[in-house]
Computed example of a mutant assay.
Amino acid sequence: MEAAIDRIMMTYDLLLNRSAAASAEAREKVTEYVTTLFEAGEKDMHRLTVCGLTYLRELDGTNDPVKAGYTGL
């Protein structure tokens, strides 16, 4: 599980330029989320990584298609 969290944070830090405090806060949130997934039975590191990255992107709003300019038209 720790390897998945490290991979999530390494990738997420490459996507966004954030302060150390923001990175620490994101790590805390994603650790809690990945722990929940792990305890629920998800053991695949790659799935945990993808789910964790998706979770962080949803938190910061970068996964919002409307903000990205997609209107459906």
Rank of each mutant, 00 (worst) to 15 (best):
M1W: 10
M1E: 13
M1F: 09
E2N: 01
E2V: 07
E2I: 09
A3V: 06
A3C: 01
A3H: 05
A4L: 03
A4E: 03
A4M: 02
A4R: 02
I5F: 00
I5G: 00
D6L: 02
D6F: 00
D6T: 07
R7P: 02
R7N: 05
I8P: 11
I8R: 15
M9P: 08
M9I: 15
M9T: 11
M10Q: 11
T11L: 10
T11C: 11
Y12C: 08
Y12F: 13
Y12K: 12
Y12N: 14
D13Q: 15
L14V: 14
N17V: 12
N17W: 07
N17D: 11
N17F: 08
R18D: 14
R18S: 10
R18T: 15
S19E: 08
S19Q: 14
A20V: 04
A22M: 07
A22R: 12
S23F: 15
S23P: 14
A24C: 05
A24P: 04
E25M: 12
E25V: 14
E25N: 12
E25C: 08
E25F: 10
A26P: 00
A26S: 05
A26C: 04
R27F: 01
R27I: 09
R27P: 05
E28F: 10
E28N: 12
E28A: 11
E28S: 13
K29T: 09
K29W: 06
V30C: 04
V30M: 02
V30S: 04
V30T: 07
T31L: 02
T31Y: 01
E32K: 11
E32F: 07
E32V: 08
Y33V: 05
V34S: 00
T35G: 09
T35M: 07
T36G: 07
L37M: 03
L37W: 02
L37V: 01
F38G: 09
F38Y: 14
E39R: 06
E39W: 04
A40Y: 01
A40L: 04
G41H: 08
G41M: 08
G41C: 10
E42T: 13
E42K: 13
E42F: 10
K43P: 01
K43T: 11
D44I: 13
D44L: 11
D44V: 15
M45V: 09
M45L: 07
M45G: 00
H46S: 12
L48E: 00
L48K: 01
L48C: 00
L48P: 00
T49G: 03
T49E: 06
C51M: 12
C51G: 10
C51V: 14
G52R: 03
L53H: 05
L53T: 03
T54G: 06
T54A: 07
Y55L: 02
Y55M: 04
Y55D: 00
L56A: 01
L56W: 06
L56S: 05
L56C: 05
R57T: 07
R57M: 13
R57W: 15
E58M: 13
E58Y: 12
L59D: 15
L59I: 15
L59K: 14
D60A: 01
G61K: 02
T62V: 04
T62F: 03
T62I: 05
T62Y: 01
N63M: 15
N63K: 11
P65T: 03
P65I: 02
K67L: 09
K67I: 06
K67E: 04
K67M: 06
G69Q: 02
G69C: 03
T71H: 13
T71A: 15
G72P: 08
G72L: 06
L73C: 15
L73A: 14
L73R: 13
